[in-house]
Nucleic acid binder design. Structure first.
Ligand SMILES: [Zn+2]
Ligand SMILES: [Zn+2]
Ligand SMILES: [Zn+2]
Ligand SMILES: [Zn+2]
Lengths: 173, 173
DNA sequence: TAGTCCTGGATATAGTATAACACAGCGCCC
DNA sequence: GGGCGCTGTGTTATACTATATCCAGGACTA
């Protein structure tokens, strides 16, 4: 399947994103006494291969083809479960896929803008949204466990222009 | 995990919920020129069997065991797709399941409170939430296609219902 | 009546996730 | 050292969710 290049690995120094994510993860796990093993670290790196959602079986393929590692679905899912527990990655429910957390240090609710074109996921942590949700929940006596806010649509890049074309000023309707 | 029966079909006249949903659906489809066939109507009825999320294969089993109908996955998924298009049901992404829409007449964004205990899904249509989301999206030039707000937790009943407190307050739209 | 579209039956397969068992390494306590 | 339990991973099998494809029959149209 032809996946559009999940945003911008060309448009910025993505190696920096990855290195930073790994460094923070290392630090965080050490502090917590959690074991960021070679496999787990590698899976985290693979999730960070782009800013787009990454599927478990995609990771599986990479582990097999690039690392020569014998791997089966549980190998990947267990690593992903660990990374989720440590809040180093998030699961995008509406896509059955995973994305690196942009700020693992400060716990936050999951709010995402997902571009259906370039597949970039932008993580939000907006108080307005979570406050509005908490307000409704409270009003109904609902005790919040986990929020999932996933907004699909078109990102600024993909909404206003097509790849390769000039940057046209577009007046949003 | 002990699953309590999804919402209180005993605590209220659920037949009324079902009848109402079917009546509204009939009316709406007629007005739209959409064909609410026997199968589609039956699937809608099955989705409305509870106020909890219902899986596609659950519906499939019911069709086979209760209706004696020969049915395969596509049978169910096609009916579900139709019902979703007509906005008679919603898909709960985080559960791979479906739930009847409480107000198919007025189009609205999907916002749900999902009880992890009794599995009741309460649909919201809160302007505060969607406004906060739209605001964030706008701020980032993101063009919203479809919102998904799914909040997991404990409903009033299942959380810490105090003895003697009123229970089961369910606001319809 | 013939043509066309819509619906749904039937078969096969794709995609996502977990159960269950095995085994190796490590720390611990005797 | 030897038994023990714990964690992480390998291995196999299976469950669960969803779609692709082809076809038959009925409804609508001209
Ligand atoms: Zn980057
Ligand atoms: Zn985009
Ligand atoms: Zn009811
Ligand atoms: Zn409940």
């Amino acid at each position: 399947m032809a996946k559009s290049p999940a945003l911008l690995e060309a448009d910025h120094d993505h190696r920096h994103c990855v290195d930073n994510a790994l460094a923070v993860a290392t630090e965080l796990c050490q502090r917590r006494g959690a074991r960021l093993t070679v496999l787990r670290r590698r899976v985290l790196e693979l999730v960070w291969r782009s800013h787009g959602p990454v599927g478990a079986y995609e990771i599986l393929d990479w582990l097999r083809s690039e690392d020569g590692r014998t791997a089966a679905p549980p190998t990947v899912y267990r690593a992903l479960d660990f990374l989720i527990e440590q809040r180093l990655i998030h699961r995008i429910e509406s896509l059955n896929a995973f994305v690196g957390c942009i700020d693992p240090i400060n716990p936050h609710t999951g709010q995402y803008l997902i571009c259906r074109d370039c597949r970039t996921v932008t993580e939000l942590d907006d108080d307005g949204i979570s406050h509005a949700i908490r307000r409704q929940a409270q009003q109904r006596g609902f005790q919040i466990g986990q929020q999932t806010v996933e907004v699909h649509g078109l990102c600024e890049n993909c909404a206003g222009k097509k790849p390769g074309s000039e940057i046209g000023r577009q007046s949003a309707s």
